[in-house]
């Protein structure tokens, strides 16, 4: 496989917090259009890997290449502009603004100070917001303050805020955490729909959900890749079984 086929290639990535290596010499390759699920026990470094990719945490060594861009040298907003979107574990939305405004702020236009000052809410923006709102099941909530949404709806709203950015690589940190069974089903359906034409990295604890959406699974353990491949292969890997059942 040539280098070009990967949308994201992480090589030899290490981050050390006061000597503790949360991520240790990690290499990870994500194909164009792939849905990759990262699983692993608590403290395996899953969220840290996402933090490193999106620039929230600076790496100690190693490289992260997104298409041809080296992300380790870029700041958060530049990484976003390059086409990487990130959803946080706890729903991170603007509670004081309406659902419409939440989506509008994420629309990729008028991102500089003066761009924002002269930003016009034109028909294209309105249409796009309505389209996304429908996708994330919030079309009737547009005028409501986002703080009033339920937990599940907040998760959807954040996914919607990412979608409107039209990222090429979408990173979701536990998108179904704290959701009811019905919401979970809807979310799986939503994820399947939105992942068309883009690559996705999902961190997930819920095995059933992971199995439902994953193309490939990476198991992290103590900051390193323990196993990688299809869900079936990973589940039957003795190393994985030991880590998961060993304690």
């Amino acid at each position: 496989m040539s280098q070009k086929d990967f949308v994201l290639s992480v090589e030899g990535l290490t981050v050390s917090f006061d000597g503790f290596k949360a991520v240790n010499d990690l290499s990870l390759y994500v194909d164009e259009g792939e849905i990759r699920v990262i699983i692993g026990p608590n403290g395996a470094g899953k969220t840290t890997v996402l933090d490193l990719i999106c620039g929230r945490t600076a790496s100690t060594s190693g490289s992260i290449k997104f298409r041809d861009k080296e992300l380790t040298k870029m700041s958060e907003h530049q990484i976003v502009h390059a086409g990487v979107g990130r959803k946080f574990q706890n729903p991170s939305i603007y509670e004081d603004l309406s659902v419409f405004e939440n989506l509008e702020l994420s629309y990729p236009k008028g991102r500089s100070v003066f761009g924002a000052l002269f930003f016009r809410r034109d028909q294209a923006v309105i249409n796009q917001v309505h389209e996304i709102a429908e996708m994330i099941f919030l079309q009737d909530m547009l005028d409501k303050p986002a703080g009033l949404l339920s937990h599940g709806q907040k998760q959807w709203l954040e996914i919607g805020m990412l979608l409107i950015q039209e990222p090429d690589l979408l990173m979701l940190d536990e998108p179904v955490a704290g959701m009811s069974v019905a919401e979970r089903r809807k979310t799986a359906e939503l994820l399947k729909r939105i992942t068309k034409g883009r690559s996705v990295i999902v961190i997930e604890h819920d095995m059933q959900f992971a199995e439902e959406i994953a193309d490939r699974v990476t198991v992290l353990h103590q900051g390193q890749v323990l196993s990688e491949g299809s869900m079936e292969r990973v589940q039957n890997d003795p190393k994985v079984i030991e880590v998961y059942l060993g304690h």
Binding site: C54, R56, S75, E76, H77, V80, H81, G85, R86, F88, S92, I93, Y94, L105, S106, P108, R111, S112, M161, Q165
Partner: peptide
């Protein structure tokens, strides 16, 4: 949510 604003692509 300063962080979120940053990850919506704003400096």
């Amino acid at each position: 949510r300063e962080e979120r604003v940053r990850f919506s692509g704003y400096d």
